[in-house]
Design a protein around this nucleic acid. Structure first.
Length: 571
RNA sequence: CGGGGUGUAGCGCAGCCUGGUAGCGCACUUGCUUUGGGAGCAAGUUGUCGGGGGUUCGAAUCCCUCCACCCCGACCA
């Protein structure tokens, strides 16, 4: 491709709406333009990247035996009503009506449609297993779209759905997809981790997220420093402390803490480590107020809370409920002196093992110190894992210690089971002649999100640094004085022809621009390899090669330049 | 949905407080010069000042209202 014939829409300054590096660079590099909140147009350069990603995804899906289909993005409400998701999906789903006032949605996902296809087309176990996938635009009306393409409302997703005759078969399909995902993200040149994820309300059998590691990620991932264990923080189990509770050594004291309603404040006031404090969080579930206790430096895990027996469907307690059940105002609450007939005390595993701790006194401007279970108040009604793990916690698999990193979720595999097939009566005739519902799995990859995530992981102050497999062009040929010097022009043209002839995606910058402009554009747009041709070098028969990550250029003979570059390309 | 912020040329911004012919840089067009890191000179082009309403002789500027976009948060006592 010749730059003079192409469309490079680079910007010197990033539009003010962009905050993250990837968002700024995609705008500045001319990959995308914003149409509205969470809505982006993809310009030619961005499309080249997107196509690279799609191609790798397709190749690996095909290799894994999945079959490509395409389903309409606009889907009738009836199908969604069959599974109950027409109401469950809520405002996240964009609903539209046709001229006859029939209701449709713009698909946020396609389980219903694919299950409809399966129930109509798949009749016998002999046709199983089968896996259908599509790469298609989805729409989710996110609460807060942000970070450009990383959390857009409209986005491209590869979604695949497997159908098996039984559960072991489904788990094999699941594993096949898992393996395909590992290959895809590896081929894309990304640093990623598959992590165990919450299976959520659906209660599926297995679920893994594929997280691209990046500081700007919205997800927190806990991983072991000594094993393969990795899980979303929402999911990672916080083990009970190994050491048993120490014996009480202090006596209980109620001391004033005027105007100090937080654990941090009390710890500071009394000169104690935050780890000695316990905070109380009140919530309401099953017609009853519950006091949850976690250590002052820990945070509550709402997903885990929902799984505690008796807390399903919980909500935060309101002010009146707090006063009625605990006799004290928020900020000064604790387990001591409570009427357990009015309130249930649920302690985190860590808290249950604490002694001589600090907690609220259930009276405004007072806290307790030297508090001990059994002696000063009854043991907790229930001990449960209700907190988020923190760095330094032991790994749940018993090997090593947890560390926490941020990630961007780019893929998710899910062993679904019969949730959709049963709801939609999607059955096949089994070997024994009976009708059985399909065992399903679903598998998503955020194709457009991958592009943003890759930039988050691969950029510097000058611009993007594409991994070769995603680069819009792999090599830039930059002649200095193309329009001035016949020698430069001839060398550039022959290099361009040689590389293009060898199947290398090369961009020849034949624009009549100054060197600084061409170099800055190449760096901004992230073309990983470049050859600079100037009269100066040509006098000694040399051109300059520089990888986007190299600190300096290296001279190579003109005759061997194309070969030199090709040796450096990713296979 | 709650809170905060921003809307002025394609992009980045000033002007608003204190009302009086809409500006700067970049980009774009033409010409000349320049050509190893985002050129120089000259001459140009580009605006419903987010929309609507009000106050005023006069509104980008003051008031009301709506909208869009961005950020933080969404009950962690």
């Amino acid at each position: 491709m010749r730059a003079s014939q192409y469309f490079l829409a680079t910007l010197k300054e990033a539009p003010q709406e962009a905050e993250l590096p990837s968002h700024k660079l995609m705008l500045r590099g001319g990959l995308i333009r914003k149409l509205g909140s969470g809505l982006y147009s993809w310009l030619p350069l961005g499309m080249r990247v997107l196509h690279k990603v799609e191609r790798i995804v397709r190749e690996e899906m095909d290799r894994a035996g999945a079959l490509e289909v395409i389903m309409p993005p606009v889907q009738p409400a009836e199908l969604w009503q069959e599974t109950g998701r027409w109401s469950l999906y809520g405002p996240m789903m964009l609903r539209i009506k046709d001229r006859a006032e029939r209701e449709f949605c713009y698909a946020p996902t396609a389980e219903e449609v694919i299950t409809d296809i399966a129930r109509k087309e798949l009749r016998s176990y002999r046709q199983l297993p089968v896996n259908f996938y599509q790469i298609q635009t989805k729409f989710r009306d996110e609460i807060r779209p942000r970070f450009g393409v990383l959390r857009a409302r409209e986005f491209s997703m590869k979604d695949a759905y497997s159908f098996d005759a039984d559960e072991p078969g489904m788990l094999r399909s699941y594993q096949r997809m898992f393996d395909a995902y590992v290959r895809i993200f590896t081929r894309l040149g990304l640093k990623f981790r598959p992590v165990a994820a919450d299976t959520g309300e659906i209660g599926g059998l297995a679920s893994h997220e594929f997280q691209v590691l990046a500081d700007s990620g919205e997800d927190l991932i806990a991983y072991s420093d000594a094993s393969d264990y990795a899980a979303n923080v929402e999911q990672a189990e916080a083990l009970a402390p190994a050491a048993p509770r120490a014996a009480a050594s202090e006596s209980l004291a109620k001391d004033p803490t005027p105007g100090t309603a937080t654990c941090e404040g009390v710890a500071k006031l009394w000169g104690l480590p935050l780890q000695r404090t316990v905070k109380a969080i009140l919530l309401y579930a099953n017609h009853r107020v519950h006091m949850l206790l976690i250590r002052g430096d820990h945070t509550l895990n709402e997903v885990k809370v929902g799984k505690v027996p008796g807390l399903k469907g919980w909500r935060w307690a309101n002010e009146d409920e707090i006063l009625a059940a605990a006799d004290g105002p928020a900020g000064y609450l604790g387990p001591i002196g409570l009427d357990r007939a009015k309130i249930t005390v649920i302690a985190d595993r860590t808290v249950a093992a604490m002694s001589d701790f600090v907690c609220g006194a259930n009276a405004k401007d007072f806290h307790m110190r030297g508090a001990n279970w059994g002696r000063d108040c009854p043991e907790p009604d229930l001990v449960a894992d209700i907190r988020n793990v923190v760095a330094g916690d032991p790994s749940p698999d018993g090997k090593g210690t947890l560390a926490i990193v941020r990630g961007i979720e780019v893929g998710h595999v899910f062993a679904l089971g019969r949730r959709y097939s049963e709801a939609m009566q999607a059955t096949f005739t089994a070997e024994d002649g009976t009708q059985k519902p399909f065992e399903m799995g679903c598998y998503g990859i955020g194709v457009t999100r991958i592009v943003g995530a890759a930039i988050e992981q691969n950029h510097d102050e000058r611009g993007i640094i594409w991994p070769d497999p995603m680069a819009p062009f792999t090599v830039a040929v930059i002649p200095l004085g193309y329009h001035k010097s016949e020698a430069v022009k001839a060398a550039a043209e022959s290099l361009y022809a040689e590389l293009a002839g060898a199947g290398v995606e090369v961009l020849l910058d034949d624009r009549n621009e100054r060197p600084g402009v061409m170099l800055a554009d190449q760096e901004l747009v992230g073309i990983p390899h470049r050859l600079v041709i100037g009269e100066r070098g040509l006098k000694e028969g040399a051109v300059e090669y520089q990888h986007r990550r190299d600190a300096a250029a290296t001279k190579v003979p003109l005759a061997g330049a194309a070969a030199h570059v090709r040796e450096r390309l990713a296979p």
